[in-house]
């Protein structure tokens, strides 16, 4: 087994390094489908985070009691319970938001991000660690969906969170609120973030090589002396 990360790292790894959308490419269906506006993205991400955190807590705490043959069935039951709770609460308290997210709230059940984290993490780690991991993944999901929804909303309907940002003479690009806009924006964002990651990695390796060269030079000097 891998060596355990620190608790802070357990949370922050979901934000960037293992960002569920940009790095793990999980949960693409809601990512592409609901992000026509920033508020939809936020609502979707919060609902997903709620389900993720609570099912992670429950599953990690009962992980030793569930026989491995029925673990997937039990996980799905637990996840579905929380998803139904979210769906009912949203319908009761935020009917407009629930309407605009449509069938994608019930569909959180099959979001591979959630089952993926349970299978890969919660079923092998303690409660606190699982909760932190879930919260981190949820935050990463929130960041990604907010950015995607924000960009699409600004370009596609001139507004951000309902406030007009682009001037009146700006003609909204309808394509951005169509599915094609989701794919285009997500693809370009992934390309951009990957190029940043590659550059960062390159700098790191350069640094290591530099250090190695220095130490080698020092050694030769030592040896020479």
């Amino acid at each position: 087994m891998k060596s355990k990360l620190g608790f802070v790292k357990e949370y922050t790894k979901g934000l960037w390094e293992n960002n569920p959308v940009f790095k793990q490419v999980l949960g693409m269906c809601p990512t592409l489908a609901v992000t026509v506006s920033a508020i939809n993205g936020i609502a979707m991400a919060l609902a997903t985070t709620f389900v993720l955190v609570f099912s992670s807590i429950i599953i990690s705490s009962v992980r030793k009691l569930i026989p491995s043959q029925v673990r997937i069935a039990s996980y799905i039951l637990i996840i579905a319970t929380f998803v139904t709770i979210v769906d009912l609460v949203m319908k009761a308290q935020f009917p407009d938001l629930s309407k605009s997210l449509g069938p994608y709230i019930p569909l959180i059940v099959v979001n591979c991000l959630i089952l993926g984290r349970q299978e890969a993490f919660s079923s092998k780690n303690g409660v606190l660690r699982s909760a932190l991991d879930a919260l981190g993944m949820g935050t990463g999901f929130l960041i990604a969906l907010f950015m995607l929804g924000g960009i699409r909303e600004i370009l596609g309907s001139r507004t951000l969170l309902g406030f007009q940002i682009m001037p009146d003479f700006y003609e909204p690009w309808l394509v951005m609120i169509l599915p094609a806009g989701a794919f285009l924006t997500l693809g370009l964002m992934m390309a951009y973030f990957n190029s940043i990651a590659i550059n960062m990695k390159k700098k790191e390796t350069d640094k290591i090589i530099e250090q190695y060269k220095k130490s080698k030079a020092a050694k030769t000097i030592e040896a020479g002396a």
């Binding site: 009691l65 569930i66 026989p67 043959q69 029925v70 069935a73 039990s74 039951l77 637990i78 579905a80 319970t81 139904t84 709770i85 009912l88 609460v89 319908k91 009761a92 308290q93 009917p95």
Partner: peptide
């Protein structure tokens, strides 16, 4: 038996929880 018991327990708890929540939410919806 263990498998059946686990699934039953999970199902019962989740069912009870949901019926409680839905009792609160349905009238509002």
């Amino acid at each position: 038996i263990k498998m059946l018991v686990t699934l039953t327990i999970v199902g019962v708890i989740s069912g009870a929880l949901l019926s409680e929540i839905s009792g609160w939410a349905e009238p509002k919806i």
